[in-house]
């Protein structure tokens, strides 16, 4: 069974991002970039499937600039077998990425795509779902457990207020939630070995995909600064404020 894992290059989760002064987006100059943390979880799951003898090959795919190759290398160091970079300097929206992935799925014929549930830069949470729709495949989103048996995937999903376990037929798209696993750190020998693993480069034009943006970003702003708290003298005053100012109790 082949597993395809899309990995996105995003601003490192430790970086305190700053909005550009013209409010058109986030300042990416000299900012540390890393693999989207949910994609790390996807790679880990795919590698575990391979180690368990369920998967035979894990392919890491990224859509982005040349530097996205580093993100693929990280996936290769974690245990993926090979990579595919679809090179583009354009901003690609989730629909565009889903279309590109659809083409790659057509070429590679994987049985399973494990994607992160969302990327931490745009928080779209759309690519996996769109890909499943475009392919006409089953989808199981927000996975916190994944079991493959008899051509079916049993997935425990994190939903509001609890867990839902579903079974989907394969091929399928699964999107990984935070608790699916704890990604490993790549060992130094594996970082070295990853350099020798192949990364195939393609362009959006070669795949014949229209990635023209459908959305227009009007404005990006920082979250409102948190206001300083107040000290209350009595419990009665606290209850009064919770009731009348915060409106959190009736």
């Amino acid at each position: 069974m082949k597993v395809l894992v899309p990995v996105k290059r995003v601003v490192d989760y430790n970086v305190k991002i700053r909005v550009k002064s013209d409010k058109t987006g986030v300042d990416l100059a000299n900012v540390k970039m890393s693999m989207n943390p949910f994609d790390e979880i996807s790679v880990e799951e795919a590698v575990r499937l391979k180690e368990a003898g369920v998967a035979t090959e894990v392919i890491a795919v990224s859509v982005g600039p040349q530097q996205a190759q580093e993100t693929i290398r990280t996936a290769l160091a974690m245990g993926a077998d090979r990579g595919i970079l679809v090179k583009t300097d354009a901003e690609v929206e989730p629909l565009g990425v889903a279309k590109i992935l659809k083409e790659l799925v057509g070429a590679e014929s994987p049985d399973l795509v494990i994607a992160g549930k969302q990327a931490i830069d745009d928080d779209s949470n759309q690519t996996g779902q769109m890909l499943a729709a475009l392919l006409g495949w089953s989808q199981a989103t927000f996975a916190s457990e994944l079991e493959i048996a008899d051509g079916k995937a049993k997935v425990t999903r994190e939903i509001d207020g609890g867990l839902q376990t579903i079974e989907v037929s394969m091929p399928a798209v699964v999107t990984a939630d935070l608790r699916l696993n704890e990604p490993r750190y790549a060992s130094l020998p594996n970082i070295m070995k990853a350099k020798k693993k192949p990364i195939d480069e393609k362009t959006v034009e070669e795949l014949g995909v229209d990635i023209a943006p459908r959305l227009t970003v009007l404005e990006v702003t920082e979250p409102a600064a948190r206001e300083a708290g107040v000290k209350v003298e009595t419990v009665a005053e606290l209850v009064d404020k919770l009731k009348n100012e915060a409106g959190v109790i009736g």
């Binding site: 130094l188 070295m192 350099k195």
Partner: peptide
């Protein structure tokens, strides 16, 4: 590049684990 990549890998582990 090997030295830089290895240091990156080590740094990422050490920052997370310690």
């Amino acid at each position: 590049q090997d030295a830089l990549d290895l240091a990156d890998g080590a740094r990422s582990f050490l920052d997370g684990a310690n």
